[in-house]
């Protein structure tokens, strides 16, 4: 760890952890608060002064989420759509990013970005007309394709930076050895940018997972994704904080699991994935 600089090495471990704690406290606290809300009876959720540790624990919120909504179906739908969107995004996005980085196709990069820049609300009516004429409303296909708008641009744009860092000499050498461009991309460039792939895959997955706008219009009862479940906790005349927080916690849970399972990759990718040897 030479690049870190000397001052950080002098920073004592205690100081480091104190600082890390200060930075991470807000993150942890909001989730802690969400979790406690999900376990509190309604009356204690809004109590003042608020109770941080001592409160009546109830699972009513969770029970309601599971009995009132097809939660597993929604979760499955979200998983299918987010995974599909990410895989498709990587399949078409990585070669595109490579090409843009290798052959300096800045214009293409901008074209891809346009998709992301168009305000989502403007998509709703034309997309509905479009996918209806293709008989694709209420299918995973339509959702995956539309979620590509939120996932693909970030895959491409972040990966451009990573591909740019791949030394051209390495690739040229491989080309001279008779390797095809596809071979160079697959065997030389891609292994070197693994950290970026993991990071962007997660981002793409997350953006798709949380997208709500398109699902309201293009999904039907069978393909509805999760975020709608949260909106459904706000009823006409009351907000049931426990149920709402329970739904929010449950929605975060799968992605948290993905993050935990992929943690080794993320960590390796983000820290040891030294691109330059």
């Amino acid at each position: 760890m030479v690049r870190g600089g000397a001052w950080r090495r002098r920073l004592s471990t205690a100081g480091f952890y104190a600082l890390a704690g200060v930075f991470m406290l807000p993150t942890v606290f909001v989730f802690y608060w969400m979790l406690t809300l999900s376990l509190k009876p309604q009356i204690e959720a809004t109590a003042y002064p608020p109770s941080f540790v001592r409160f009546t624990v109830t699972l009513a919120g969770y029970r309601e989420v599971f009995t009132k909504y097809p939660f597993f179906l929604y979760t499955w739908n979200s998983l299918v759509v987010a995974t599909g969107c990410t895989l498709l995004g990587l399949a078409v996005g990585l070669p595109a990013a490579y090409s843009i980085a290798r052959w300096r196709q800045q214009r293409l990069a901008v074209v891809i970005l346009v998709a992301r820049i168009i305000p989502g609300i403007a998509y709703l009516i034309p997309w509905y007309i479009f996918f209806r004429s293709l008989r694709m409303v209420d299918t995973y296909g339509a959702l995956i394709l539309t979620h590509l708008i939120v996932g693909l641009p970030i895959i491409i744009w972040v990966m451009i930076s990573f591909f740019e860092d791949v030394p051209a000499d390495l690739e040229d050498a491989a080309l001279i050895d008779g390797c095809s461009h596809l071979g160079v991309f697959w065997r030389v460039a891609l292994p070197l940018v693994k950290p970026g792939v993991v990071a962007t895959a997660i981002l793409s997955f997350v953006f798709s997972w949380n997208n709500f706008l398109f699902s309201v219009i293009l999904a039907g009862r069978q393909t509805r994704t999760l975020p709608i479940a949260v909106y459904n906790m706000i009823s006409y005349e009351e907000i049931n904080w426990g149920t709402l927080a329970a739904a929010a916690t449950l929605i975060t849970l799968p992605v948290l699991l993905v993050a935990l399972l992929a943690q080794r990759h993320i960590v390796t990718g983000l820290t040891f994935g030294a691109v330059k040897q």
């Binding site: 909001v30 929010a248 929605i251 975060t252 993050a259 960590v267």
Partner: peptide, 26 residues
């Protein structure tokens, strides 16, 4: 470090509507 990175991912993955409502209450 692993824990930290997982924690860092959490706010991004939390559904914005839900988070917004938690903030409303806070």
């Amino acid at each position: 470090r692993g824990l930290l990175r997982t924690l860092a991912i959490l706010p991004m993955v939390a559904t914005p509507t839900a988070i917004a409502l938690v903030f409303v209450m806070m």
